[in-house]
Design a binder for these strands. Structure first.
Lengths: 150, 150
DNA sequence: CTGGATCACTATCATTTGACAGGCAACCGA
DNA sequence: TCGGTTGCCTGTCAAATGATAGTGATCCAG
């Protein structure tokens, strides 16, 4: 890889991580009932209702034991509902509850308020989101096809 | 704020956080000697050599006690050098050591390799970085001018 | 010189997170 | 039916993180 491109990608990683720290801090201000990890799980379930535990654990980069722990807490708080898969009794399908929707609303408020003034304009935001969406899906695909490629 | 814009910004936050989780995981693969937080501190010092502890703590969103702890570990590992400010003996200026440069190289390798295939092309990467740079600086400014604005 | 503010630090606490070992029930192919 | 596999789970440990209280040195305004 080109040295210049390498430096570019590094800066990209750096920026994404820096901004993610701001987002975490903003979430704390909003007094959300979720830890960062729980929020990640919750957001995935909201995006992919009906996903199995394994799928959700994969997407959130968690090993199953830790995912199960996060899930237990969320269920205990009444934010996630488990449902047995009719075709395979081992599988558990996950769904957000109505309460989850309300709480995600708080999160949406906190984050969108933080980003509102920082994001240049709607047009650039669209382009940004489109590109990031692509990147994220590529990274997810890589995990699915096997993480190790050294 | 427009509901649509709110949803857009939320998705943006979601994507940034999701990608940051991938980056953290990739760092683990690279067997770096840093925790995520230490890496954040290290990267700031690398970008802003000579910054004071307060400035670095502010940029990394850490309260001074926790920043100090991270710094102690980094210094112990020989990655950061403290230097007294000639003009104000209370202040400590922070500099990366040569060893830090080497280790940042590993990090750069791990992250750029991860992003290499996921990022569409150099042109889009440039635009992406430019926009994110803007966003990050806006968020930093907001902190400097007082976090609370509810 | 004195009191208040600033800067960096330590000590300590609860919580979160990551990782491993292992268990149990359900599934599937032979 | 049986052995191996899969999906999900609990228990447990070490480490990282976030936050508060408080110390001590230095600076600065008056």
């Amino acid at each position: 890889m080109d040295e210049k491109q390498k430096a570019r990608l590094f800066e990209l990683a750096d920026l994404i991580l820096a901004i993610s720290r701001h987002l975490h801090a903003a979430k704390a201000d909003a007094a959300e009932p979720w830890t960062p990890l729980e929020a990640a799980v919750m957001r995935f379930i909201d995006h992919q209702p009906g996903a199995t535990a394994t799928q959700a654990a994969e997407a959130t980069q968690l090993i199953s034991s830790n995912f199960s722990r996060a899930l237990r807490k969320l269920e205990h708080k009444g934010l996630v509902r488990r449902e047995a898969d009719p075709g395979d009794a081992r599988r558990v399908r996950l769904y957000p509850t109505q309460k989850a929707g309300e709480n995600l609303g708080y999160l949406q408020d906190a984050w969108s308020r933080l980003l509102e003034e920082a994001v240049p304009d709607a047009g650039e935001a669209e382009a940004l989101i489109s590109t990031l969406r692509h990147i994220e899906s590529q990274l997810l695909d890589r995990i699915r096809s096997g993480t190790d490629r050294g």
